[in-house]
């Protein structure tokens, strides 16, 4: 059996990535829970990672996968800092609903 999975064109990966990114945008715009908004941002980061890996494999260039590595490192740091901010917010306002957190609103 042939395990060389090269039959799927690049467009399929790009379309999947675009659809997942749009789902992340819908989540960011419609959900009011700060943690779920944060998870939607992770989903968008992952869809961009998929694009990078797909281009890397189809171009034969490893730089895209290196960039994905750095994106994951930044995403880990971002998740930790963001969740710490959410914990600090919850301690002060007793809510994570982003409609009620408007102290920075002008």
């Amino acid at each position: 059996m042939n395990f060389n999975l090269t039959e799927i064109p690049l467009n399929y990966y790009l379309a999947l990535s675009a659809i997942m990114f749009s789902i992340g945008v819908v989540g960011v715009l419609t959900r009011r829970n700060a943690i779920i908004v944060f998870m939607c941002i992770e989903l968008m980061l992952n869809s961009v990672n998929l694009t990078l890996v797909a281009f890397s494999a189809f171009h034969g260039n490893a730089t895209g996968q290196i960039l994905v590595f750095f994106v994951m490192a930044v995403a880990a740091a971002e998740a930790a800092v963001g969740l710490a901010i959410i914990i600090a917010l919850f301690r002060n306002k007793m809510t994570v609903n982003i409609d009620e957190i408007n102290i920075m609103k002008w």
Binding site: P9, L10, A18, F21, S56, F58, G60
Partner: peptide
């Protein structure tokens, strides 16, 4: 946004990559 990404990536036609690079396994 979805429409813009699709247009930006040229998705109805694409770039014409139908198979992976031969070096894809080793990189």
């Amino acid at each position: 946004v979805l429409l813009e990404i699709m247009i930006g990536l040229g998705l109805p036609l694409g770039y014409g990559f139908s198979s992976m690079h031969p070096r894809a396994v080793e990189i």
